[in-house]
Design a protein around this nucleic acid. Structure first.
Length: 1166
RNA sequence: GCCGCCGUGGUGGAAUUGGUAUACACAAGGGACUUAAAAUCCCUCGGUCGCAAGGCCUUGUCGGUUCGAGUCCGACCGGCGGCACCA
C-alpha cells in the first residue's frame, strides 16, 4: 500500500460523490427526516475564511452521522449574494455586481467543495437570482397586504461630504468609513416592517421558551425585545394658549407619581415647537434644542455622564393624582424614540432624574420608603398588636477626628445610631437632641442637617411586648464639646455609646435601615427598589406592587391613564438606498393619491376626552392610512352644555363636507345628531356608538347611577331634536350597541331603530364601549367599517403578483444620487411605469431591500428550490420543516434570527406553511441552534488583513488535506468557544491520520484476518464515546478518543481484528470522510462507507471486570485498589480498612465514618 | 453603568456533572535509527522538599457549605461578548 497521499485521495472521492449525487436528499423517502442547516455565506472576494469550515464541518459530521443512523437528511448550501461589498466594488471598477458576485460564488463553492462536505448541491439557492428574489418580493407584498409593511420618515446615517446614506457597518466610531467625516442623521421616507405588531411581538418573546437554543442567545433576544410593563399617564398642560393640551408619558413606576416633581420631553418632542412662541426663555430653548438635535450619536453617547436640559418657562403640567403644577423641561436624556418621548421625572426614585434634578436644583421628593423586615429574635409575632412609631436617628459626628457616635447594645449583638421615638408635636431636631442626651449624655451639639430620607421597618419590641412598625429618618449634629450629662441606669444597662471611625460605620452598624440612612447621608442617590409608599396621600402605606395597581386603576377611572406594555424593539427598517438588492415591488401613483379621502371626526361622551377609551387608538390607525382625523376635547365635559358643544363643533365646520364621517359616542352621539340636524349640507356617514337619547328617563338614570349627576344630562337633551333632519343630512347611519350597557337601557336602541334608518350592530358584552367597565382600548369593528378589511394606504400600490419579479435593471453607473435616493432613481426607463391600479403614469419605488430580506426565509426555499409556481410546495415544506439543527456564528444572535423567526411566523399565519403542520410542530423555524466559536489568529487576536494573521484555507487544504483540516478544527477546543489557530497543532492531527493509514500498511495480517472472534472491548467503548460526543457536539473529545484508541491499537496490534478496524473507519467517516472511504474501498467494499449503518455497541461488553477504587482518608487520596467491578459496598469498605497504607495512615485511630461511592471510592473520616 | 459568559501546566485543552485534577495533543528536553537532516520510534515533562520510598502545595484571589469542591454558595480581582440615558 502506498503512502497516505491526501491530495489524490480527496480529489478522487469528491469527484465520485458529485457524480453519484451521494448526498441527494429525497423528497419522497419514507425514512424519518432531519434538516441540518448552515448559515449560508456571503460570497466575498476574499473567499472562505477558516471560520466557515468550523461550522460546516460540525454540521457535516452531524449530517453524515444521522444518515448512517438511518435518517433522510436535508443538508443544503447556498449564497447570501446581495450586499454592499459587490456594490462598492462596482463603484470603484464599474464591474457589474452580478459579475463580481458570480465569480465569487464560483470560487467559494469550489473552496467549500474541496472540504468534502456532504451538501445536496442540487438545492443550492442564490438570493440575487431573480428566480429566488421573486419570492422575497412576494413575501414583501404579503407583508404589505397584511399591514405589516409601511412607509414612514426614518433617519438614516448620512455622510454630508459624500452625500450618501451609509449602512451601520459603514459608520466607524460615528464617522464615515470612507472619508472620516462625522456622520449625521437625515430623515427620509423609508419602508418599515412592523415586527412590533401586537400580532407578533409577544409570540417572538414567549416562543423563545419553546426552542432548544443556547440560553445566552435567548437572553440576548429577550433583552433586545425589551419588554417592560407600566402605565401610560396623561398630564394636562395648564397653559390654555397651547395647542398641545396634554402630555402623555410612559412609566414603569406609576406608584411613584406623587414624586414626579417635573416633566421632561425629548428635544424633538412636538410640544417643544408648539410651546416655543410662548415660553419666557425662547432663545435659550431654541439654542438648546438646536444643539441637542444636531448632536451626532457619537456626541450623545459620549456625554452620557453630563445631562443637559432647558426649562420651558411659563408652561406647567398638572399632576393628575393631586392637581399639583410641575415644570416642564426639554432634555436629551429623554429619547423621542422610546415610549412617548416624554417622562414624568421622579428624582427620588430614578437615578437619571436624580442626577438631572441635582444639577438643576429641582426638588427631590421621596415617595417610596425602603422597607426592612427584621427576622430571627425580632420576628413579628402574630399574637401581638402592631404599633406604628415615628423614629429619628441622631447621628453625631466629632469634627476633630470624624468619628461617629453609635450605640452598642448590651443584651444583643447590635450596633446602631442613637434612636428614639418622635413624640406628638415634637420636631425631628428636638427629638433627636433629646434622645442623644438621654442615651449618651452628650448635650453640646450643633445641628448640621436633616437627612430627608425615610426608611421603614418592622420588628418585635420585646421590652414593650408589642410589634412595632418604625418609620425612621435622621438628623446629623456636630459635637461641640465632650460635656456629658449623667445617664440613667436604665439606659446604661441597655447600651453604651461608642465612637466609630466614619469609614467603618457601614460595617459596624448592624441595622439595615440605619445603614440605609447612613448611605443616603454619605452619598445621596435615587432609591429604585420596591418599598412602601409615603407622601402619597391616600396611597401611603401601600407596597410598590399594591400601589401600582391602585394608581393605575384610579387613572383609568379618571380617563387619565392606563396599564401599558412598552417594548424596546423598533420596527424593522426595510429599505436601503442602494442598487444591489431586491427592488421593493411597489408603485407610487400621484393620480391615486389625489383622490379625496374622508375626514373623520370623533365626539366623546360625558366626563371624557379625546384621548380616552378607543378614540386615540382609532385616530392613530386612521392617520396611519392617510386619513384626516379630528378628535376634539369637548368643553367642560364633566358638566356638558349643549350650546357650548355645538359652538365647539361649529368651529370645525370646514371639516364637514360630503366626505366626512362623524362618530359620536354616548352623549357625543346625541351631540352629533343635534349638530347634524342644525345643518343644511350632507355628510358621508354618521356612526353612533351607544348614543344617549332624548327619550332617556333621567330620573331612573339618576337612581341607577347616583354618583353621575343626571341634571346636566337632562338639560343637554331638553331641546327638540328633529331626527328626520339627521337622516336627511347624512348619506348613511351606522349604529353600535351592546347587550349589557349600564347606561343605555335596552329599549333605547329599539326606539332608534324605528326612528332612524341605518345598519344596527349589536356587539354583545361590550358594556358602554368605555373604560369604566372593561378595557375598551380598541374598536376594530368601527375601523373596519371605515377602511375595510385590509386597508392599504392611498397611492401606494403593490405590483401585481403575476408581474414579479421586479428585476433589477442593468445599469452602468452605481453612484448614489446625492439626494439620499437609491441609484435606481436615476434610471428613468425603469422608474416610470403604469400604475397597476389605475393605469396612469406612475413611479416605481426605488429603494431596495436589506440583506436580511433574502436570508430570512432561504431555509424554506431549500425544501423546494426550483418551484416557479409557489415559494415552495406545502407538501415539501411539511416533509422537511422545521430545521432540526441550525449552525452558525453568534453574531447573528439577534437580527437574523429574530427576523427569520418573525417572517416564519408570518408565513405560517398566511398558510404558506400549512396550517395542519403548524398545529403539530408550532411556528418556530429552528428547533435547535448551535453557535460556533470564533477562530482567532495564531496571535490570539481576531483574524484581519491589517494584522496579517489571516489563515488561507486553500493553502491549509493543499498542504495538510481536507480531512486533517476538518479534524483539526474539531480538535481545537469546544465547538462554541473562541480559540486561536495553531498550524503546529494541526501536525498532531495529521500524524494521527497517518497512523490510522499506516496501521493497515503495517498490520496486514491482522487486518485481513477472518473476523471470527468478537470485537474488542475497547472498540465497543469507542463506539459509545463517539456516539455520545457527536450527539452532544463535543467533537474535540471525540477526536481525542480516536487518538487514544489508535494509541492502544499501536501498543497491542494483535488484539484488534479486521472488524475492529472496519468499525473504526465507520466511526471516523463523518470526521475524515475521504480517508475512510479510501481505506474502506481498499478493504474490499464496493459501496460507499457513507451508506454503511452507524456501528452499535453492546453495553454489557463495555463494563470492565476490574476497576480501580480510590481510598481517601479525610478527603485525601491515600491508596488505590484493584477490585472486581461488581464488588459490594461491605466488601469494598472492608478491603479499604484492611489496606496496609490505610492502617498506617489511621495509626490506630477508629474511623468515625466510612463512605462508599459505587465504583469510585471509599472515603474514611477520622 | 446594566445583563450574560469565562479564568486549569510553557500552549490548545480534558475531567463520567460533587468523587484519583492536568486525559488527548502541541511545544520543550533527553535518547534510538541515520554519514547527516527530515520522518519515525522510546523516555521525561504543574510546583516544591527528598538519594529514595514518599510528603507537602496547586484549577485567578479570599472565605463558606461538604467526608470530599476545578465543579455548589458569597465577596473581590482580571478577561471576553452584548446593550448602553429604554423612563
Amino acid at each position: 500500500m502506498d503512502r497516505y497521499d491526501h491530495q489524490s485521495i480527496e480529489k478522487k472521492w469528491q469527484e465520485r460523490w458529485a457524480k453519484e449525487k451521494s448526498f441527494h436528499a429525497s423528497d419522497t423517502s419514507r425514512r424519518e427526516k432531519k434538516y441540518i442547516l448552515d448559515m449560508f455565506p456571503y460570497p466575498s472576494a476574499e473567499g472562505l475564511h477558516v471560520g466557515h469550515p468550523e461550522g460546516y464541518t460540525a454540521s457535516d459530521i452531524y449530517s453524515r452521522y444521522l444518515r448512517m443512523k438511518g435518517f433522510e437528511v436535508l443538508h443544503p448550501m447556498g449564497f447570501d449574494a446581495f450586499g454592499l461589498p459587490a456594490e462598492n466594488y462596482a463603484l470603484k471598477t464599474g464591474t457589474h455586481p452580478a459579475v463580481t458576485t458570480a465569480k465569487n460564488i464560483e470560487n467559494m463553492r469550489r473552496q467549500i467543495q474541496s472540504l468534502g462536505f456532504s451538501y445536496d448541491w442540487d438545492r443550492e439557492v442564490i438570493t440575487s437570482d431573480p428566480k429566488y428574489y421573486r419570492w422575497t418580493q412576494w413575501i414583501f407584498l404579503k407583508l404589505f397586504e397584511h399591514g405589516l409593511a409601511y412607509e414612514a420618515d426614518a433617519p438614516i446615517n448620512w455622510c454630508p461630504k459624500d452625500k450618501t446614506g451609509l449602512a451601520n457597518e459603514e459608520v466607524i466610531d460615528g464617522k464615515c468609513e470612507r472619508c472620516g467625516t462625522p456622520v449625521t442623521k437625515k430623515k427620509i421616507k423609508q419602508w418599515l416592517v412592523k415586527i412590533t405588531d401586537e400580532r407578533y411581538i409577544e409570540r417572538l418573546l414567549n416562543d423563545l421558551d419553546k426552542v432548544d437554543w443556547p440560553e445566552n442567545i435567548k437572553l440576548l433576544q429577550k433583552n433586545w425585545i425589551g419588554k417592560s410593563e407600566g402605565a401610560e399617564i396623561v398630564f394636562k398642560i395648564q397653559n390654555p394658549k397651547l395647542q398641545t393640551r396634554e402630555l402623555t408619558v410612559f412609566t414603569t413606576r406609576p406608584d411613584t407619581i406623587f414624586g414626579a416633581t417635573y416633566m421632561v420631553v425629548a428635544p424633538e418632542h412636538p410640544l417643544v415647537q408648539d410651546a416655543l412662541s410662548m415660553v419666557e426663555n425662547k432663545s435659550e430653548v431654541e439654542k438648546y434644542i438646536h444643539s441637542a438635535v444636531n448632536k451626532s450619536d457619537l456626541e450623545r453617547t459620549d456625554l452620557v455622564k453630563v445631562k443637559t436640559g432647558v426649562e420651558l418657562k411659563g408652561i406647567k403640567a398638572i399632576r393628575p393624582v393631586d392637581g399639583q403644577e410641575i415644570p416642564i423641561w426639554a432634555a436629551d436624556y429623554v429619547l423621542m424614540s422610546y415610549g412617548t418621548g416624554a417622562i414624568m421625572a421622579v428624582p427620588a426614585h430614578d437615578q437619571r432624574d436624580f442626577e438631572f434634578a441635582k444639577k438643576y436644583s429641582l426638588p427631590v421628593k421621596q415617595v417610596m420608603a425602603p422597607f426592612f423586615q427584621n427576622t430571627e429574635d425580632l420576628k413579628l409575632r402574630s399574637d401581638k398588636p402592631m404599633v406604628r412609631r415615628k423614629l429619628v436617628y441622631g447621628i453625631v459626628r466629632n469634627p476633630k477626628n470624624n468619628d461617629v457616635l453609635c450605640l452598642r447594645w448590651k443584651k444583643y449583638d447590635w450596633v446602631s445610631f442613637v434612636v428614639g421615638g418622635v413624640e406628638d408635636g415634637e420636631d425631628l431636631i428636638t427629638a433627636a437632641k433629646r434622645e442623644i442626651a438621654e442615651e449618651t449624655g452628650y448635650i453640646n451639639l450643633k445641628f448640621v442637617e436633616e437627612i430627608n430620607w425615610q426608611t421603614h421597618f418592622t420588628f418585635f419590641a420585646k421590652h414593650k411586648n408589642e410589634n412595632r412598625y418604625g418609620m425612621a429618618s435622621g438628623v446629623v449634629f456636630d459635637l461641640v464639646d465632650e460635656t456629658r450629662h449623667q445617664i440613667h441606669n436604665e439606659e446604661k444597662e441597655k447600651h453604651e455609646p461608642v465612637w466609630v471611625s466614619e469609614h467603618k460605620v457601614l460595617d459596624a452598624v448592624t441595622h439595615l435601615n440605619a445603614k440605609e440612612i447612613w448611605q443616603y447621608y454619605v452619598k445621596p442617590a435615587a432609591f429604585i427598589g420596591e418599598g412602601v409608599a409615603i407622601n402619597s396621600g391616600e396611597y401611603d402605606g401601600l407596597t410598590t406592587v399594591q400601589c401600582k395597581k391602585k394608581i393605575i386603576a384610579r387613572l383609568e377611572k379618571d380617563g387619565r391613564g392606563r396599564f401599558k406594555v412598552q417594548y424596546k424593539l423598533r420596527d424593522w427598517l426595510f429599505s436601503r438606498q442602494r442598487y444591489w438588492g431586491e427592488p421593493i415591488p411597489i408603485v407610487h401613483c400621484e393620480h391615486c393619491r389625489k383622490q379625496k379621502k374622508e375626514t373623520i371626526v370623533i365626539i366623546h361622551g360625558t366626563g371624557s376626552n379625546g384621548k380616552a377609551n378607543w378614540y386615540d387608538w382609532l385616530a392613530t390607525k386612521l392617520r396611519e392610512l392617510g386619513h384626516q382625523v379630528i378628535v376634539p376635547d369637548m368643553p367642560d365635559s364633566k358638566q356638558p352644555d349643549r350650546e357650548q358643544w355645538l359652538t365647539a363643533l361649529e368651529t370645525l365646520k370646514n371639516a364637514f363636507d360630503e366626505h366626512t364621517i362623524l362618530i359620536g359616542h354616548s352623549l357625543g352621539g346625541i351631540a352629533a345628531m343635534y349638530f347634524l340636524a342644525s345643518r343644511k349640507k350632507k355628510i358621508k356617514k354618521l356612526i353612533l356608538v351607544a348614543p344617549t337619547s332624548t327619550e332617556m328617563d333621567w330620573t331612573e338614570f339618576q337612581k341607577q347611577h347616583p354618583d353621575n349627576p343626571a341634571a346636566w344630562q337632562r338639560k343637554f337633551h331638553e331641546a327638540e331634536l328633529r331626527y328626520a333632519d339627521v337622516q336627511k343630512n347624512t348619506e348613511k347611519i351606522s349604529y353600535y350597541y351592546s347587550d349589557n350597557d349600564a347606561y343605555i337601557p335596552a329599549e333605547i336602541p329599539e326606539w332608534y331603530k324605528k326612528k332612524l334608518r341605518g345598519d344596527y350592530h349589536l356587539l354583545p358584552g361590550r358594556n358602554h364601549f368605555s373604560l369604566k367597565n372593561g378595557h375598551a382600548y380598541t374598536f376594530p369593528e368601527v375601523l373596519e367599517e371605515i377602511v375595510g378589511k385590509n386597508p392599504l394606504p392611498v397611492g401606494v400600490n403593490p405590483v401585481h403578483e403575476k408581474d414579479l419579479p421586479v428585476e433589477l435593471p442593468n445599469v452602468k453607473k452605481y453612484e448614489p444620487t446625492g439626494t439620499g435616493e437609491s441609484p435606481l432613481a436615476s434610471i428613468e426607463k425603469w422608474v416610470n411605469v403604469k400604475c397597476p391600479k389605475c393605469g396612469k403614469p406612475a413611479k416605481r419605488e426605488t429603494n431596495t431591500m436589506p440583506q436580511w430580506a433574502g436570508s430570512n426565509w432561504y431555509f424554506l426555499r431549500y425544501c423546494d428550490p426550483k418551484n416557479d409556481k409557489k415559494l415552495a410546495d406545502p407538501k415539501k415544506l411539511e416533509k422537511w420543516l422545521p430545521v432540526d439543527m441550525y449552525i452558525g456564528g453568534a453574531e447573528h444572535a439577534v437580527l437574523h434570527l429574530l427576523y427569520a423567526r418573525f417572517i416564519y411566523k408570518f408565513l405560517c399565519d398566511i398558510e404558506v406553511v400549512p396550517k395542519s403542520f403548524v398545529k403539530k410542530h408550532g411556528d418556530e423555524p429552528f428547533t435547535k441552534l448551535k453557535n460556533q466559536g470564533l477562530i482567532l489568529g495564531e496571535d490570539g487576536q481576531k483574524m484581519s488583513k491589517s494584522r496579517g494573521n489571516v489563515i488561507n484555507p486553500d493553502e491549509v487544504i493543499k498542504k495538510f488535506g481536507a480531512d486533517t483540516m476538518r479534524m483539526y478544527e474539531m480538535f481545537m477546543g469546544p465547538f462554541e468557544d473562541a480559540k486561536p489557530w495553531s498550524t503546529q497543532g494541526m501536525i498532531g492531527v495529521k500524524r494521527f491520520l497517518e497512523r490510522v493509514w499506516n496501521v493497515f500498511v503495517d498490520q496486514p495480517a491482522q487486518v485481513s484476518a477472518p473476523a471470527m472472534a468478537t470485537m474488542n472491548k475497547r472498540t465497543h467503548q469507542l463506539v459509545k464515546k463517539i456516539t455520545v460526543d457527536i450527539e452532544q457536539f463535543k467533537f474535540n473529545t471525540a477526536v481525542s478518543e480516536y487518538m487514544k484508541y489508535t494509541n492502544a491499537v499501536a501498543e497491542a496490534p494483535a488484539e484488534f481484528l479486521k472488524q475492529d478496524f472496519e468499525v473504526l473507519l465507520r466511526l471516523l467517516s463523518p470526521f475524515a470522510p475521504h480517508l475512510s472511504e479510501e481505506l474502506w474501498e481498499q478493504l474490499g467494499h464496493k459501496e460507499s462507507i457513507s451508506k454503511e449503518p452507524w456501528p452499535s455497541f453492546d453495553p454489557k461488553l463495555i463494563v470492565e471486570d476490574e476497576i480501580t477504587i480510590v481510598v481517601q482518608i479525610n478527603g485525601k487520596v491515600r491508596d488505590q485498589m484493584k477490585v472486581a467491578s461488581d464488588i459490594s459496598e461491605d466488601e469494598a469498605k472492608k478491603l479499604a480498612l484492611s489496606s496496609e497504607k490505610v492502617l498506617k495512615w489511621l495509626d490506630g485511630k477508629q474511623p468515625k465514618k466510612v463512605i462508599y461511592i459505587k465504583g469510585r471510592l471509599v472515603s474514611i473520616v477520622v
